[in-house]
């Protein structure tokens, strides 16, 4: 299953995703998709360096399905992380249209 790499930004804790440019973006749509083990390892290594440089914390891969709307996490926990609280749709990324 394809995966993306996620973390929280150190300064404000906001959920971020590793993008193709190796930058961290807030919207899951911009996440770089890793289709195989080798590329995911490289992505995790990049993320690990960002963690060591105190840019992000709690780096973890996230299993996703590719949909026309972009990557969609397989697990409900990751879907809520990527969107915001289901009980407060006025907050989180869902509120910003991310």
């Amino acid at each position: 299953m394809p995966q993306i790499v996620s973390a929280n930004r150190l300064t404000d804790g906001i959920v971020v995703f590793l993008a193709a440019s190796d930058a961290w973006v807030e919207g899951i749509a911009g996440a770089r998709i890793f289709d195989d083990k080798a590329s995911l390892e490289a992505g995790m290594a990049t993320a690990g360096r960002a963690s060591a440089e105190n840019i992000v914390v709690d780096v973890a891969p996230v299993e996703v399905a590719q949909t026309p709307r972009g990557p969609e996490p397989k697990h409900i926990r990751d879907r809520i992380r990527a969107a915001g609280p289901t009980v407060r749709t006025d907050h989180g990324k869902q509120a910003a249209g991310l």
Binding site: N8, D12, G13, I14, V57, D58, R81, P85
Partner: peptide, 15 residues
């Protein structure tokens, strides 16, 4: 442990 001792958690969306 320091942030926890001061009530700061890292939760699902933010601190």
């Amino acid at each position: 442990p320091h942030r926890l001792m001061n009530g700061v958690y890292l939760q699902l969306h933010a601190y």
